[in-house]
Design a protein around this nucleic acid. Sequence first.
DNA 1: CGCATTATAGAACGGTCGTTCCAAAACACC
DNA 2: GGTGTTTTGGAACGACCGTTCTATAATGCG
Lengths: 201, 201
Amino acid sequence: MARPREFDEEAALTAAIDCFWSRGFEATSVRDLAARMGITGASLYNAYGDKRALYRRALDHYVSCSVGERIFRLESTRRPRDAIAGFLAEIVERSLNDAELKGCLLVNAAVEGAPHDAELQSAVVDVLRQIEAFFRRCVVAGQTDGTITPRHAADELAGLLLGVLMGIRVLARARPERPLLEGLLRPALAILDDPHPKGPH
Amino acid sequence: MARPREFDEEAALTAAIDCFWSRGFEATSVRDLAARMGITGASLYNAYGDKRALYRRALDHYVSCSVGERIFRLESTRRPRDAIAGFLAEIVERSLNDAELKGCLLVNAAVEGAPHDAELQSAVVDVLRQIEAFFRRCVVAGQTDGTITPRHAADELAGLLLGVLMGIRVLARARPERPLLEGLLRPALAILDDPHPKGPH
DNA sequence: CGCATTATAGAACGGTCGTTCCAAAACACC
DNA sequence: GGTGTTTTGGAACGACCGTTCTATAATGCG
């Protein structure tokens, strides 16, 4: 029993993601956001609350479209070891195609905003745990079927993979060089192998 | 033949580092800076030019005190393999003692400011290359004296170590948990070992 | 001691920030 | 078709932004 919203909320949120993604939270003004979202400031505040709330909505949407989708797709179509390698390879490819050097919105949020915003912090932590859990599930499954070495604890390998993932996203921001990123992937994935002298290859 | 500066430039620069380090570039105002540095805005502009120039000065000073010192100290007192392990262990310890979750100013700069500031970008890239070169020298030396496996190319191992380093600093920002950070270090360092089944257990 | 030169303090600048207010417009429902 | 509720556009708000200006104070050098 009221006037309905005129703009496409999903499209507007995607536009907001673009703004925050390429400029960060602090450097993005509400006027930038409203212009790119195709709405006025009043509509923005009416629909989302304030700038910070919009940022969290944007981050949530980004995460579910990006991280969530990737984990589900890889885990349901690839064998454990391939899922891990595919995840990292996709991130490298994504980073190398990122001409604007926007990086990863989640990583940007973890570095720029999270330490001073408890709610944002816990949202970021939650996603990082999801990614870590994905790696751990893959490692455990691989260790069970013999495609991943049992030499290291699954927790430690999952943590390392998460760390390498974060590292790639930061490195790519400053040095988007294919040899660097693909090169570091090789020894990183080799840790998963069994350490037999006459091992794989 | 003029009035001399009244404030301690080194102390002021250290205060500026603190500001930028804990709040980032955008969220730190010139008034914040001047207050913490114990000078007025006019003196700040007179001595450093503008906010951006001060940021770069602060970053330079931070890097030479932090990264530069660490590389020199470890490389001149430890054997290759220990220098690598010591570097990463020191970063983990530093991150765990970072109650304010300020992270690493260099990583913060790489993520927040560098992509939109060519000069800052090249400064960051330069430092990253120095760290990578340190890791590479250690790897090559270790491969020469047999304490590091020749199984992987030194370039790739150096890149991986650099990536793990960046990853630790981002992870620690969101999840400053000792088991996570120390746990991921173990398989990371194990890559340097020879893969003999009856190896250095 | 004067003079040139620089540093200092603090006010002041125009601009932009995040946010709110207001009047007009558009729908759902009785 | 009126009524109530929400959205919309755009102006407006006070606060703060990075930076500059002005006047005064402090020095090195002749």
